[in-house]
Nucleic acid binder design. Structure first.
Lengths: 208, 208
DNA sequence: GGTGTGCTACCCAGTTTCCGGTATTGTCCG
DNA sequence: CGGACAATACCGGAAACTGGGTAGCACACC
């Protein structure tokens, strides 16, 4: 038995209250301990490279560098890093991007403390538990948007007209309309406003 | 000196992690104690009526009954109840609604623990501290939407067309267009998608 | 009694969106 | 090399949106 057999955890979340809450929950279990607690994606990467934790609890929305980018950066240097994305977002696109970036699993912030601890232990043991609710989002076979289509949808949400989008992307208005037609078909809507709504709820675009 | 001179706090938030975090922060201060911790607006009202806390920490987004309604319900029975709304939303409309409902003050969830404790003590002492950032949102003299205009904007966000909105509200399409013209003027935009964006960022409409 | 506000309704004209096509180019991949 | 896909561009017509105006009715407030 080593000097410190506890599972070490790195917490990355921009809300002080959430960081404190997670620390409290983890602190109640003798087989786990908080190694570090940071508020930005950049700090998360730096902290992990300085001293790799057994598992990382990663929020998605953070300043400077978001959770997906931080996850990708960590996994690029440490392909075996165990990262649990813990966030409020439940859109299938958020989930897919996080898992593609190398997250081991994805947990919703309204999970119970017990779920969090159980998942953390399973991940540390090499498992890959996926919340049924999260799994359900992935089971729906959804047409994903291309990068260009996402960009167009973002600009629509910004409040730009087709003509303005065309000017911003240096393409013709006709092409913008083609992208929109494809977006509508993939999101199964008929108007821009409906597309924005679906895009937001599925995590394809975000506020801010 | 009474048997228990500590400031009693009622926590209302639907995220277990946030409740734990708040409990931890409060528990670190000997002049404060957590009286109860609930996850819904209904439970918050019930808990307060059963045993009024010195101050209430109230989230806005909660199931069954949201924070504004719960605040209104509590203040109706106890006009001197001290309620601190503690939420992620920073739209001026969210803030106005909460204060109108009777909240003593409004705190953003990304505040530091120290700020939270300081504000709680000040409120308990009869003060009414308002975060500078929150105050700044109120200082901008903004044209508020009428109830009908809000309803129209909600339906626009739902993805309905003018014709469908007219049918839903049992009014003519012309009237819907008049409402939209007024909405555009108040939000200082020209198109529906831009109006939705501004409405979301200002807390006039919400996802969900 | 007058004033303001909210909600309703209409007219007209111009602009934009939406939907059905077709088609070219380049890239990636088996 | 052939096929799939992404991105580009154009055509044409129907439908919807946007912006300017006027106006009636109810209700609250001073």
């Amino acid at each position: 038995m080593t000097r410190n057999p506890a599972i070490s955890v790195l917490i990355a979340d921009d809300h002080p209250i959430v960081r404190e809450g997670l620390s409290l929950i983890i602190g109640r279990h003798s087989d786990m301990r908080v190694l570090a607690s940071v508020a930005t994606g950049e700090d998360a990467v730096a902290a992990y490279l300085r001293e790799p934790a057994d598992i990382v609890l990663m929020d998605l929305q953070m300043p400077l560098m978001n959770g997906v980018e931080a996850t990708r950066a960590i996994r690029q240097k440490h392909p075996d890093a165990k990262i649990i994305v813990l966030t409020m977002y439940s859109g299938d696109e958020d989930i897919r991007r996080a898992l593609e970036a190398g997250a081991t699993t994805y947990l919703l912030k309204d999970s119970l403390s017990d779920d969090l601890i159980r998942v953390a232990r399973e991940v540390h043991a090499g498992g890959r538990p996926l919340d049924p609710e999260v799994q359900a989002r992935l089971d729906v076979p959804s047409q994903r948007l291309t990068p260009r289509e996402m960009r167009v949808l973002e600009l629509v949400f910004e409040g730009y007209r087709n003509k303005e989008i065309a000017a911003a992307l240096l393409i013709s208005e006709d092409t913008v309309e083609v992208h929109l037609k494809n977006i509508f078909a993939k999101l199964m809507v008929h108007y821009c406003t409906a597309a924005v709504r679906v895009g937001l709820s599925r995590g394809i675009i975000h506020m801010g």
